[in-house]
């Protein structure tokens, strides 16, 4: 497994996976972590305490504060795994100390929704 580590850390949790990009400002409730964009695959689901697996973030630059707010209100994912990283997700995770890694397309495909995993950036491992 080759990980590109953007924000380091170790966390355990269940994968919540989508193949749709996420607009944090426009479609995530910053207090509860619920996705409120009815057209999103994860509509109505909460990203709280998950290992959030999604292609990349999109949209408003203020999404970085949304990620920080999620962390402050205890509703953030334990970690995030993306295919591409945009500055909004990277900076929000950096301030909120949410582990963030980039994986290759093939590795991304292998990550299964609902699976319990451990992400350890220092050991370069997703177990």
């Amino acid at each position: 497994m080759t990980l590109k580590v953007i924000v380091r850390g170790r966390s355990q949790g269940k994968i919540l996976k989508t193949n749709m990009p996420i607009n944090f400002l426009g479609s995530v409730d910053k207090k509860t972590g619920v996705i409120n964009d009815s057209r999103h695959e994860l509509a109505g689901k909460s990203i709280k305490n998950s290992i959030l697996v999604f292609p990349h973030g999109v949209g408003s630059s203020v999404g970085a504060y949304t990620i920080y707010s999620l962390k402050s209100s205890g509703s953030a994912p334990y970690a995030m795994i993306c295919k591409k990283v945009d500055l909004t997700v990277a900076s929000g995770c950096a301030l909120g100390n949410i582990p963030l890694v980039i994986v290759t397309e093939q590795e991304y495909e292998k990550l299964q929704n609902g699976k319990q995993i451990t992400l350890d950036t220092d050991a370069d491992k997703i177990l």
């Binding site: 924000v7 408003s60 707010s69 900076s91």
Partner: peptide, 29 residues
């Protein structure tokens, strides 16, 4: 973190920053 994310090789000087995140509606408590 943002530099690593975008494969930047270094930081460079900039002349002007324009910020977002001023609306209480968006950045919250």
């Amino acid at each position: 973190a943002t530099g690593e994310a975008t494969n930047a090789e270094r930081l460079i000087p900039i002349k002007w920053a324009h910020l977002s995140g001023a609306n209480y509606n968006t950045i919250g408590d």
